[in-house]
Nucleic acid binder design. Sequence first.
DNA 1: GATAAGTTAGTTAATATAAACTAACTTTGT
DNA 2: ACAAAGTTAGTTTATATTAACTAACTTATC
Lengths: 193, 193
Amino acid sequence: MLTDRQKEIILVSLELIDKKGIQGLTIKNLANKIGISEPAIYRHYENKIQILIGILDFFKSNTEDFFTKELKNDNNSVEKIERLFSNHFRTFSATPSLVSVVFSEEIFRNETILIEQIAEIMTKNNMVLSNIIETGQNKGEIRTDINPSYLSIMILGSLRMFVKQWQMSNYSFDLVKKGADFINSLKLLIQKN
Amino acid sequence: MLTDRQKEIILVSLELIDKKGIQGLTIKNLANKIGISEPAIYRHYENKIQILIGILDFFKSNTEDFFTKELKNDNNSVEKIERLFSNHFRTFSATPSLVSVVFSEEIFRNETILIEQIAEIMTKNNMVLSNIIETGQNKGEIRTDINPSYLSIMILGSLRMFVKQWQMSNYSFDLVKKGADFINSLKLLIQKN
DNA sequence: GATAAGTTAGTTAATATAAACTAACTTTGT
DNA sequence: ACAAAGTTAGTTTATATTAACTAACTTATC
């Protein structure tokens, strides 16, 4: 659905945001880095907002595929959570610049459409996780002394902070490897007994 | 140390960032909202970066006072953590616009000085918390099956996510009240047995 | 299979707007 | 009367976007 150039624009935009923040994403920087002129960008995206929407779509499709696949099976809930996040770790490892974008609602504050999309993603993540937790509690796999929505906030917050630290350390450790270790600790917290 | 007008500039800047994101903090918006002309701003701050530094200082002094006070006493570690965060909740309740700023490293990506200050704050928070946890583990108050740095990431991440949800819900619940409840759940997770 | 018509992806040049900041003058409060 | 805080009217620089045009390729038609 996306042309090669469109994919390139999205990827280079992610890199720019990653390295210089949202203020670094200008049509000029984008064009320079790709090696074409500024107006050429407009042959591929109508305007800057469409590019930002493209970035969000890139991430959305990335996770949505996985959600639908993973949620169908009938694994243990704790394992499900484990897989959900090791998948995220793999995604971030492959495209580290995604971290800046996905964890910075700030970037999308200008346009209502963008805010809505970000809110949608976050609500979805939260609902999916709450559901898994509730099921796990009913099956006796997850501790029941804390309500699902709180547990969900804690898990999502923990993971987010973990990834953010990886980013702030300049990707100095292996996210997938250390991430697996971190998830193990998280499992200790949420498992029954 | 700050004049009334300087305080006003900081507070209005916080409001602008809170409502429109960092892109909403312009000298023009600032001047309009205060009700003076743009150049008048420069009578009080040399340039925009100084204003941003002012915002960070405002938050730093807010927490530093508390840290030094709170850490001297010899309370139970879990209680210490509880107080540390209920204090944060109170601060955010009083000045909700702080949330956008403190939790958005993104905002300060342009200038090296600002990045350093943010990193300093985060490192400090993390060290203070790790220390409290380690002490608590040695005194048998906190579970020892998870290492202090992981626990610290989990706690900070949980709290951050909790506050962020409060913000994203348009401050629809009482942060201090529900926050106390949330901290209770967190306590269940980290306490020994 | 050659030519006309259309498309794609690019170029350079220009424009509108908005940002941060400055110089020179005026008002206000003690 | 003088210093602090304000104003008006600018400057410079950057940014997104548009206009006008072109080279190279693809498709349709005779």
